[in-house]
């Protein structure tokens, strides 16, 4: 018994050691960028490198926001991500409802189609999509991004919605409909409140992906005033004389919504998403 306990203790110490190492490896890049964002520009390039600012300043944040264009990038990203998320949630909830509550011809085909779309390489579609939007005069317009993001996020989220709705017994809606509710009202008053956690998960997931998307945003939007955050950041990296402090402050700004949302979905992710979504 004693040796068993000893062994258990050793295993646990080893586990914690691995976890702490992994945590340091994960957090250090964040730490470094955060520290740099708080330094004065003279200190950033100075040797020896300082691991904590000698003089704390928020000047970089003020500059990034006011003159670095990040207030605009932030607004653009927010607009594109929110509208795309709205459409993704609406449409995938409609698909999910159809797939979970009805038997109909072509259902298998539709499910297969959704699955297939997951396998198309995104880089493959930049050229034809550019041509489509060019023809529709949507280049350098946020709607090209909103449409693209919505289309690319529907398949996965429709499958997710389907498994959420399947998990809710249809008897509640049926009872409401027997009581004289229309189908639409039954859905709004009975199903919707029960589905809220699922909707929140889909919305958070889709918001994060939209907020992060880079290649299409780079391809379809060409003027600085319409850049989203990832494109704005990447243009700053590409400049000849990089203003490191401002760049780091900009990335911290880009991080804030992600961290907030991530804290919400993170717990939920492992229990719900992994098992449910994959099996569709």
């Amino acid at each position: 018994m004693r040796s068993y306990l000893n062994r258990k203790k050793r295993v646990q110490t080893f586990m914690y050691l691995v976890l702490i190492l992994a945590a340091v490896w994960t957090l250090f890049p964040f730490y470094w960028t955060f520290v740099t964002s708080l330094k004065e520009s003279a200190e950033i390039g100075a040797k020896p490198i300082s691991y904590w600012p000698r003089l704390l300043t928020v000047e970089n944040y003020v500059q990034a926001w006011k003159t670095g264009g990040f207030s605009g990038y932030f607004r653009n990203s927010l607009k594109v991500a929110l509208i795309s998320t709205f459409f993704t949630v609406m449409l995938s909830a409609m698909d999910g409802y159809a797939l979970a509550r009805f038997q109909f011809k072509g259902k298998t085909f539709f499910l297969l189609l959704l699955l297939c779309t997951q396998f198309f390489p995104t880089a493959m579609l930049i050229i034809p999509l550019f041509k489509i939007y060019n023809g529709a005069h949507l280049i350098n317009n946020h709607w090209s991004l909103i449409l693209t993001y919505t289309v690319f996020h529907i398949p996965f989220n429709a499958a997710l919605m389907r498994s959420f709705i399947s998990g809710i017994s249809p008897s509640l809606e049926e009872a409401a409909m027997v009581d004289g509710c229309g189908r639409f009202q039954a859905v709004i008053h009975v199903l919707f409140p029960l589905l809220l956690p699922g909707i929140a998960a889909v919305a958070a997931y889709s918001f994060i992906s939209c907020w992060n998307e880079y290649l299409y945003a780079l391809m379809f939007v060409s003027s600085d005033s319409k850049y989203t955050i990832p494109v704005g950041l990447s243009m700053t990296i590409g400049e000849y004389s990089i203003n490191y402090g401002q760049l780091c402050a900009g990335s911290m700004i880009a991080l804030i919504p992600i961290i907030l949302l991530f804290m919400y979905v993170q717990k939920y992710m492992v229990s719900g998403l992994g098992a449910g979504a994959i099996k569709g």
Binding site: L233, S251, I259
Partner: peptide, 23 residues
Amino acid sequence: FRAILFLPWALSGVLVSLLWAMM
């Protein structure tokens, strides 16, 4: 630990590039 270790999953490629460029 889960929250910390999963965090990079939610980051954009550009942001990761930036964090690592600073490294």
